[in-house]
Design a protein around this nucleic acid. Sequence first.
DNA 1: TATAAAACATGACAATTGTCAGTTTTTTTA
DNA 2: TAAAAAAACTGACAATTGTCATGTTTTATA
Lengths: 229, 229
Amino acid sequence: MESRCENCIVRQFNSLRAMSKEELKEVSDSKVTKKYKKGETLFEEGEKLNGVFCVREGVSKMSKLSANGKDQIVKLATTGEVIGQRAVIVEEPTNLSAIAVNDMEVCFVPKEIIVNSMHKNPDFTLEVLRHMAHDLKEADDVIVNMSQKTVKQRIAEAFLYLKNNYGVDEEGYLSLTLSREDIANVVGTATESCIRIISEFKKKGYLKTSGKRIGIANEKELQDLIDGF
Amino acid sequence: MESRCENCIVRQFNSLRAMSKEELKEVSDSKVTKKYKKGETLFEEGEKLNGVFCVREGVSKMSKLSANGKDQIVKLATTGEVIGQRAVIVEEPTNLSAIAVNDMEVCFVPKEIIVNSMHKNPDFTLEVLRHMAHDLKEADDVIVNMSQKTVKQRIAEAFLYLKNNYGVDEEGYLSLTLSREDIANVVGTATESCIRIISEFKKKGYLKTSGKRIGIANEKELQDLIDGF
DNA sequence: TATAAAACATGACAATTGTCAGTTTTTTTA
DNA sequence: TAAAAAAACTGACAATTGTCATGTTTTATA
């Protein structure tokens, strides 16, 4: 039997926490839990979404194809986050693709439930608004980083981000392993440049690697580099 | 005597249009109309805002100081737009500075009025949410442009943006004149690089200039350049 | 309107980053 | 576990972009 949203811990971290008991029941009754394997697509840029996805487990990369054929990863969506909200609110096709970075479990909630609640429950709408306001600030920060920091700084920043948000395993390697190509697509550079800089960081003792796994060996030096020292 | 919000055309373009008559009256009674000369600061990054600003006339650049001391212009806010909303919603200091690009007239609305309406009027909240969702999409697009397009393409794009959004004067020059430095700060490049590329575009017949005024002489070529031909 | 200040412009050069063309290693799958 | 596929890596080189230094033009102001 499916688990009930009312008892879902994940909900504490997203806008669904502002829903009433009745609304939650509705969500719970209509939601569909889906599993995606690493690399599978939740949805693609340009698709019309008829609901939102609440991430229970795993990480999804949210990306946009650029004119030159490269994917730019705009953000990573993690446990607790609701994705697809933006498109549902403005009733437009989504501007981003969502692809599982590792195995995922997500709950799909039909848009009618969400839209309905937004018309009836101002607290819920306000909570959604707060989350979107937060996302917008983060997007502003990304814009500034993209244009004002070097590729080296952005890569260093990406690793600290991964450490702070997803932690490290018992051997000290980052728990969330992204391919070099994905990292390049996060910081907006060529895969080769990304690999080269990782090699350089390794030589300098800032990072350690084991296959595709990467660990931070000298956090302070990385931070100094980001800060421009 | 101050003009009434109820009759303000500007309101049609922003979230205030979802307000009830009573709410609008409240706004109207508590708002303060302010004028800013070109170059003056509406507010600075890190400030706490105790209200929002509704732009009646003129344009404001919304920027963020980066670690290397350069301002990155994240967006331009124009007639009809409400600025400072994000900060008021999340109850945080604002993450952006607002500086008048030309002479401005704005209405300052105390945050209590806004917050109050957001708790009581779901239509208003939803309308604010829609606007923020739109801003977020635009920010995503900027991120992709920043990381995947060349400086040359971004500058070309900036000029077409200025033409499409602010139009041209009778001589064919862009109605909104930004300094070369501002343009550089919009596209995220060095002022010298920006000037150089403008000169190049002029030589190639894509642009014409007269002092600091700039006009588009060959829109198609600019568009081709943006599209990567 | 003379003078100062700001903005615009250009050259020379160095640093950063991307592209292409491969090789090697790791991971996946039959 | 062998073969195939994908990912990681490296070198060489070119293109892009930033920096510094300096001169010119435009704009603002006393």
